[in-house]
């Protein structure tokens, strides 16, 4: 029996489908004049705490919507509700990252026209979410002062793609003996052009700069 063999040269990006869907999301967001942020960090760095505080403090100033990704529970969505902003929980069912199709689905649960700013809290993970464009305008990577100053060097792919790096839990930096100069230098090495903010969602330290950034970026969009 004759076996025929042939080769097909595909040369196609494996995440090409996600990139296409992300472009479609981005187009849709821009048609609604919506600024979109993708918030990324390890578990426990304080993404939800920063969002809680942001929703409280910007209530009445910016119309904010939130999509929050988690492997299993809807705990984060429940924490964020009741603050005047629509919140949609995306339960990934064990998947370690959000992708553009999950965002497209969640978008259906919002009236995007009624929003100025969409904050997407990704699954807590410094590896996989780096590879998935969601259609955001700004990538924000958070790390807390308790995580070790060499974290950016350990996860350079994530930090390299950051537009903004937020150092969180600054109110306890001294108590936990954080080496802030080393941390800042390691961020500079992995994300040399990123804007760096140092905040505490608990004490409010540094938050005005974060809010200024959000409002300035949003003001560049059509009303």
């Amino acid at each position: 029996m004759e076996t025929r063999r042939w080769i097909v040269e595909v040369n196609q990006a494996l995440l090409g489908k996600n990139t296409e869907l992300a472009a479609r999301n981005r187009e849709r967001f821009h048609a609604h004049g919506l600024l979109v942020l993708n918030l990324l960090s390890a578990p426990g760095s304080g993404k939800t705490a920063l969002l809680e505080r942001t929703l409280n403090d910007l209530h009445g100033k910016l119309r904010i919507g939130v999509q929050v990704g988690d492997l299993q529970t809807d705990n984060d969505a429940r924490r964020l509700m009741g603050r005047g902003a629509p919140v949609v929980q995306i339960v990934t069912g064990g998947c370690c990252h959000l992708d553009a199709s999950m965002i497209a689905q969640a978008n259906e649960k919002f009236d995007l026209e009624q929003l100025d700013l969409l904050l997407i809290e990704n699954v807590g993970n410094l590896v996989c979410p780096a590879s998935y464009d969601l259609g955001e305008d700004v990538r924000v990577v958070l790390l807390s002062v308790t995580e070790g100053d060499d974290k950016p060097l350990k996860y350079p792919t994530m930090f390299r793609k950051a537009d903004v790096v937020v150092i969180t839990k600054m109110d306890i930096a001294e108590a936990v003996g954080a080496d802030l100069p080393a941390l800042r230098e390691n961020i500079r090495r992995t994300a040399p052009t990123a804007m760096v903010l140092e905040v505490s969602a608990r004490s409010g330290l540094g938050l005005p700069a974060w809010y200024d950034f959000l409002q300035q970026r949003r003001s560049g969009f059509p009303a």
Partner: peptide
């Protein structure tokens, strides 16, 4: 992160 090529085989195609 790309798929470069696929090789197929078939008997009595």
């Amino acid at each position: 992160l790309d798929l470069m090529l696929v090789e197929f085989a078939a008997e009595n195609l």
